[in-house]
């Protein structure tokens, strides 16, 4: 009887331990993946090109420079986006103070009017500059917004299923991400809508090692419903430039610093 009880306890606790360690692992993986994707170095700079193809096959381009500075590892970040092309958005600046627990702060500078506009930022899953990327795809989705489940492990990657904590806040019911075991970069994400249909795929097309940081240099998001897609490429990527915090203020909206321009 005692033996049996002991056995049960051992089995139960093992099961419990295993499950806990599994779920911890999923959270750990996602946390590492978030750091690898959005927090490499203390700061970074990149030339960004976006090629947008709409559902009718028409092409549009965006060219911008992104500066990033981390205030906390895995936490608050500052982003400075300077638009180079096309002509109608040229010289506009988009400034984001990314917050984790509250909404981000966003400012848009319109040089033709010398106007610093505040942008309401409650919905992060709206299109970024008319592309298939959402704001969240550019600056990262908070790891606390989803429940993470490790559903499979292959030789090279972890497959994590992410279910939103607050399902009404998003258009997906869940998404699965394939995360590279070595670099922790998310290589592919597939989004499933509320009817159980896959409708959106984000894929990494190329990864380069830059100063020791595995860096995505090209990725693509496809909307399977509309047929539109956006390819984003990052070039001249640099890390640990020692970017000053003051760059990410109103002063430098009106006076674009050289580092953001060239």
């Amino acid at each position: 009887m005692q033996k049996r009880l002991m056995k049960t306890i051992i089995i139960l606790s093992t099961a419990l331990f295993t499950t806990t360690s599994y779920s911890l692992t999923a959270d750990e993986i996602v946390k590492k993946s978030n750091l690898a994707s959005y927090y490499s170095g203390d700061d970074g700079k990149s030339y960004v090109k976006m090629d947008i193809k709409d559902s009718q096959g028409r092409k549009r381009k965006r060219e911008l420079i992104i500066l990033r500075k981390d205030l906390e590892e895995g936490g608050k970040q500052l982003f400075y986006l300077y638009f180079r092309k096309p002509s109608d958005v040229r010289k506009m600046v988009f400034l984001v103070h990314k917050n984790i627990k509250t909404d981000d702060y966003r400012w848009l500078y319109l040089p033709a009017l010398d106007l610093v506009k505040r942008i309401a930022a409650s919905d992060k899953r709206t299109s970024f500059v008319g592309s298939n990327f959402f704001y969240e795809d550019v600056s990262g989705r908070s790891v606390n917004e989803d429940k993470h489940e490790l559903i499979n492990t292959t030789d090279n990657s972890y497959i994590v299923k992410n279910t939103p904590v607050n399902p009404d806040s998003v258009e997906f019911s869940f998404y699965t991400v394939e995360i590279d075991k070595k670099t922790y970069l998310p290589l592919k994400a597939v989004y499933t809508d509320k009817n159980g249909k896959e409708y959106r795929i984000a894929e990494v097309l190329s990864v380069e090692n830059i100063k020791g940081f595995a860096t995505v240099t090209k990725s693509r998001i496809k909307n399977l419903v509309s047929g539109s897609e956006t390819v984003i490429s990052f070039s001249k990527v640099k890390y640990n430039l020692g970017l000053k915090k003051k760059i990410f203020t109103e002063r430098y909206l009106r006076k674009v610093p050289r580092i953001a321009r060239k």
């Binding site: 909404d103 702060y105 505040r118 942008i119 309401a120 930022a121 409650s122």
Partner: peptide, 11 residues
């Protein structure tokens, strides 16, 4: 004064 409250921009 301009601030972000209740998910919007107040001024």
């Amino acid at each position: 004064l301009r601030a972000q409250i209740l998910g919007g921009i107040f001024n």
